[in-house]
């Protein structure tokens, strides 16, 4: 076991260390110390509440709170803007209207339509298409090639009570059943334009033959 009590091996080092100059504190040591102590005591006396409400801490925190409130009202971050924008909203869909005919008695028609079954609707649509094809003088647009029927009577100068029939029956024509669509009321001018287009197409078809 090593004997650590024997200092004789390190006499030189020990003497050198003992001869080292003694370091003294600076002249103003006590003054600086008591200044620090009084400063520490003052800091301790200030309570937590007082510290919070000192201007150095209060002003930044109030400023931050005010900024947050202003930003909240400016950006209105919790409301989805798409709900309010009419341009981004989906169009209103008339899903309840399945088949609409010439409005002799619209209210009656509507009640009848609601009670029709799917097969009845196909049958009614076929009959309707047949009637429209049989009666070209009827006040309607009839283009079987396009599968589109526009029927109805003008109610006023600016409105037209009719419908676009887009049904597809079992024999191949278009059916409105199960479709969501928007009902269009054509004005007299629009009807005339469509009529013109129809005539042009008929003429073209005739010429091609």
């Amino acid at each position: 076991m090593k004997n650590y009590d024997d200092d004789s091996n390190f006499i030189g080092v020990i003497n050198e260390l003992k001869k080292l100059n003694k370091i003294e504190a600076p002249q103003n040591f006590e003054k600086v110390l008591f200044d620090k102590l009084s400063q520490t005591q003052e800091d301790e006396k200030i309570s937590f509440i007082d510290r919070i409400f000192t201007p150095a801490r209060l002003i930044p925190s109030v400023g931050l709170a005010a900024t947050i409130i202003i930003l909240f009202f400016l950006t209105n971050i919790f409301v989805q803007s798409t709900e309010e924008n009419p341009l981004l909203a989906d169009p209103r869909v008339r899903g309840d209207v399945i088949v609409t005919k010439v409005a002799d008695n619209p209210s009656k028609k509507e009640t009848n339509t609601k009670t029709e079954t799917k097969e009845d609707i196909f049958a009614a649509t076929d009959n309707e298409n047949k009637n429209l094809n049989d009666n070209p003088t009827n006040n309607s647009i009839n283009d079987p090639n396009l599968g589109i029927r526009i029927t109805g009577e003008p109610i006023t100068n600016n409105s037209y009570n009719g419908s676009i029939l887009t049904s597809v029956s079992p024999n191949g024509s278009i059916d409105k059943n199960g479709l969501d669509y928007k009902q269009i009321y054509l004005q007299r001018l629009q009807r005339a334009q469509i009529e013109q287009l129809r005539k042009k197409m008929e003429e073209m078809l005739r010429n091609n033959r």
Binding site: K2, Y4, N9, F10, G12, V13, I14, L17
Partner: peptide, 9 residues
């Protein structure tokens, strides 16, 4: 202390 002195030496 011994080890420290040895290093110093």
């Amino acid at each position: 202390i011994n080890r420290g002195r040895a290093q110093l030496q």
